[in-house]
Simulated assay, not measured.
Amino acid sequence: MWRLDELELGDLDADLTTALTYVNEDPVYELSVAELAAIKAVYDLYEVMLGQPAPGLQPAILIAARPILHAAYNQVQIGGRLEGLRSRILASTESCPYCGFGEVKDLDHYLPRGTYGELAIYPRNLVPSCGPCNNAKRTVYPGMPAAQGPGLIHAYFQPLPDEDFLHADVEFDADGTLSVTFRVDNPGMDPGLAAKLQFQLDRLKLNARYRAQVNKYLSEQRTAMLMLHATGDAVFSEFLQRSSAALVASCGRNDWRVALLRTLAADPAFCAAPERYVGPPPAA
């Protein structure tokens, strides 16, 4: 969740050639030497700016080529000439970095291709994502009016502190219903970054979407939890703590599951009677 390892760029020249050449080898658009140099300069600047907006990402020399490059993204779709690029990006992660659980089926343009057509097929401007996150994020872009929100972090470039900042607040209703709300909170974190992370939670409606995931996850852990709880509350709490720590290696320390288990391990009500909240063990 939140971050992805930086994607290998692959052969950018080959991608451009494939995108701008029909299968019969006729050109869709012939880039001039100056236009090709400008596109490469845009790609380099995108890296320098860590994916954030900059005037140089829309050079005047690409006015004619920009709509062609914008349309070239159609070749990244299934059945297109750049379908291999799509497959490579989608295969780079097992779950959506925006929510941490969704199946990756879409490619999200971090900088919108409607504005930055030059980056329509640039691999690191294409974030593998699930459909719900991609749809919710669609009109969000860096540098949008402050009244609309601070935008989302860049899954490839945003540095994150190696500290806990995602927290789970739990409430136990009288009928045994477990309610969980996630929030971003770290006093030492840059306020702008904290605002972006919280905005991401809110914009993508993750708290509402996590409800089903929390129930599913705890149901999957029910048998192990109840077996460990039989050995005593203290051992059970330590089991939850160790389970949370073990998930850090694969999911990151601010994954929603890590935050959930960390909170449950410290909650006396849950550790005293987990069966009230996860249900009784399955019948033999």
Rank of each mutant, 00 (worst) to 15 (best):
His70Ala: 11
Ile68Ala: 09
Ala34Ser: 10
Ala65Arg: 03
Gly232Trp: 11
Pro281Tyr: 08
Gln221Glu: 14
Asp190Trp: 00
Asp13Arg: 14
Leu36Ser: 01
Gly188Phe: 06
Leu119Tyr: 04
Pro282Lys: 12
Gly51Arg: 12
Leu160Ser: 03
Ala273Arg: 14
Asp233Thr: 11
Tyr22Asn: 15
Asp175Phe: 07
Ala259His: 00
Val48Thr: 15
Gln58Glu: 13
Thr231Pro: 02
Leu226His: 12
Pro123Thr: 11
Ser129Lys: 02
Gly232Ser: 04
Ser32Ile: 04
Leu50Ala: 10
Ala136Glu: 06
Asp44Leu: 13
Met49Gln: 14
Arg262Ser: 15
Leu166Lys: 02
Arg81Phe: 03
Ala147Pro: 01
Gly176Cys: 14
Cys99His: 08
Gln58Val: 11
Gly51Pro: 06
Ala269Met: 01
Ser129Thr: 14
Ser219Glu: 08
Cys99Asp: 10
Glu103Met: 12
Ile63Ala: 13
Ser237Met: 01
Pro161Glu: 10
Ala284Ile: 05
His154Val: 00
Leu107Phe: 01
Pro132Phe: 04
Pro97Thr: 03
Cys99Met: 12
Asn254Pro: 05
Asp267Ser: 01
Leu9Ile: 14
Ile153Pro: 05
Glu47Ala: 12
Leu45Asp: 01
Leu7Met: 12
Leu160Glu: 03
Leu9Glu: 09
Phe157Asp: 07
